[in-house]
């Protein structure tokens, strides 16, 4: 217990009732936050008959993985009935290069903007930073035209380009703020020892950058995986990412509505980011904070 908590505890007095109320409220809220996930999961293991009969809050009476298999392999999205697996891989193929490229560029940019400052470095950073926050609607039409002219419409490569371009601002922000606190004396010392621009980056900064690289990769991964607007605007067909496919699956009005399959697909779409969140929640949080509370 920290000294500060002690102080508050003393002031509150050792009221048992208070504690019970506080714990009660916290647990009720926890249940409310968990409810949608719970409903998604239970629904995805129920048969359609059970769903129609039933209690949305009940556990599956006769659990089945059939909806998951259908969602993955044979659910109909648009005119094809191959499930979401192809779109899942589309997302992977989009996310991996986009995250790697934007992180690498962000690291170099952050290095230059903190350790090799030049006249106007603040303006450059300010322009890159504001770019993170624009509503993407204001670049949607030109982007669609340019992707078309580059022959990148409806391709994963096109989406990679888009996500790199609109991700640089954030990755630069992460690395800039991290390297800002990195002692400049180390850079000076390495310069005097004869190290050049890239040697200093590779030998001095990069080995100390693991935490921010993790933060940046997780942030970018989550953002790009979860993106919908760019996906639906620039890659709506066979090359659509997972989020777009999920929406198409859920919104399609042909045939019998298979809620269990929808939910299984939704869980599959959520799984990669949820796993990252469970495994590295601390870094996930740091990324969100850094993205929210600037410099």
């Amino acid at each position: 217990m920290s000294a500060r908590e002690m102080a508050i505890a003393t002031a509150a007095g050792p009221s048992r009732l208070n504690r019970v109320v506080i714990y009660g409220l916290l647990l009720i809220f926890a249940a409310m936050y968990l409810l949608p996930l719970f409903v998604m999961l239970t629904t995805s293991f129920k048969s359609l008959d059970e769903i129609r009969g039933g209690d949305i809050l009940a556990l599956p009476a006769d659990p089945t993985i059939q909806p998951w298999l259908r969602a993955w392999g044979s659910a109909c999205i648009g005119v094809t009935c191959d499930g979401i697996k192809g779109y899942f891989w589309n997302s992977i193929k989009m996310v991996v290069p986009a995250v790697l490229i934007s992180t690498a560029l962000g690291a170099l940019n952050g290095y230059v903007l903190t350790k090799w400052r030049f006249r106007g470095h603040k303006l450059v950073f300010g322009l890159m930073l504001f770019a993170c926050f624009i509503p993407f609607q204001s670049v949607l039409i030109p982007m669609a035209r340019v992707l078309g002219q580059l022959g990148l419409s409806n391709t994963t490569a096109g989406l990679v380009l888009v996500h790199v371009v609109y991700g640089i601002g954030f990755t630069t922000l992460f690395f800039r703020n991290y390297y800002e606190a990195f002692p400049t004396e180390l850079i000076h010392s390495a310069q005097m020892d004869g190290a050049g621009f890239f040697t200093i980056f590779r030998r001095i900064l990069l080995p100390s950058s693991a935490p921010i690289i993790v933060v940046c990769v997780i942030y970018q991964f989550t953002n790009i995986w979860n993106d919908f607007l760019f996906g639906v605007s620039f890659a709506s067909g066979e090359s659509a990412p997972m989020t777009v496919a999920l929406n198409n699956l859920v919104a399609s009005s042909t045939g019998v509505k298979e809620y269990n399959v929808d939910m299984a697909a939704a869980v599959i779409a959520a799984l990669p980011t949820l796993i990252v969140y469970v495994v590295a929640g601390r870094y996930f949080m740091r990324g969100l904070m850094a993205g929210a509370v600037k410099g």
């Binding site: 000076h188 030998r203 001095i204």
Partner: peptide
Amino acid sequence: PSKRDIAMVFQSYALYPN
């Protein structure tokens, strides 16, 4: 700096942490 044949000891020592 590296071509001046000078060595410097910094206030924070500037030891490379890695």
